[in-house]
């Protein structure tokens, strides 16, 4: 094997990354671009996307455009149109990584229907619509297809205040399993990555609710401590590249050992 060959390389492939302005999405976009992919990056945060493009601008390759699209994915009816614009600008897609997600810690008695429906819309329905878009010949490049949904350990275990979030992630895992069977004949793989507590802006929202004792207690539940966005991005790259060619319908847990306890 050639020492320079990187098994995670993505040359010649077009990926759509949602939630690319920050956290796991940003880390994923940076890594996939550096592995050779051309990207469509989507977020509702215009400044965040601009800063991502600025960060990559010294490394931009002419053959691999990085195209930003501002969109609020809670408008799930608009997703097929968004994907069509991504394809028009940067060519047919080899894959999608859905990192966009919202969280709202709240006791169930305060839950409002509009609030949890929005969580479900961004976390789960948007993923479904992105998957549906990939099933079209006008969207999919026809080979090396890989869809990755960022799920969460909260889809598999419970936590006080996380009812709607847990629901959205458990639904995401189940949806991905059936989607993987539907898209297998077209050689599009579908997998979830389930992170544990990773240091991102979304996590920091949760952390503000904890005192120091609670923070330490939660960290102690992780044999390897809290994670970094890069830890999740690495797992996404593994699934996106040929290294994951026989993996579909799975949930890859990246959680520092949290679920093993």
């Amino acid at each position: 094997m050639d020492a320079a060959f990187n098994p995670l390389q993505l040359h010649g492939r077009h990926f759509l990354v949602t939630g690319a302005s920050s956290g796991i999405g940003r880390s994923t976009a940076l890594l996939l671009y550096r592995l050779g992919a051309r990207l469509s990056v989507v977020d509702r945060d215009e400044q965040g996307l601009a800063s991502l493009c600025a960060e990559l601008s010294p490394e931009l390759r002419e053959a691999d455009p990085l195209v930003p699209h501002i969109a609020d994915l809670s408008d799930t009816a608009a997703i097929e149109g968004l994907v069509a614009r991504c394809v028009a600008a940067n060519g047919l897609l080899h894959g999608v990584v859905h990192c966009a997600g919202i969280q709202a810690i709240a006791p169930v008695r305060t839950l409002k229907i509009d609030g949890w429906r929005k969580i479900l819309a961004v976390n789960t329905e948007a993923a479904l619509m992105l998957g549906k878009s990939m099933s079209s010949k006008k969207v999919y490049a026809g080979e090396n297809g890989s869809i990755v949904f960022i799920s969460s350990v909260m889809g598999m275990v419970g936590s006080v205040g996380a009812v709607a979030y847990s629901m959205s992630k458990a639904a995401l895992d189940g949806m991905a399993r059936s989607l993987s069977l539907e898209l297998a004949p077209r050689r599009i793989r579908v997998n979830c990555v389930a992170p544990g507590y990773v240091r991102t802006p979304l996590f920091e929202q949760t952390e503000t609710l904890w005192d120091d004792a609670t923070k330490k207690a939660v960290e102690d539940l992780h044999p390897l401590g809290f994670g970094q966005p890069e830890d999740v991005a690495n797992a996404v790259a593994f699934l996106a590249a040929d290294t994951g060619r026989w993996i579909t319908g799975s949930v890859l847990v990246v959680d520092g050992g949290y679920l093993a306890r």
Binding site: R177, L181, P223, Q228, D231, F238, S250, V254, G256
Partner: peptide
């Protein structure tokens, strides 16, 4: 690249178990 992965059963099965 897998420095934060431990305790995981990683399924590599062509979608069989789904």
């Amino acid at each position: 690249q897998a420095r934060w992965i431990t305790g995981h059963q990683m399924v590599v099965d062509g979608g069989r178990s789904a």
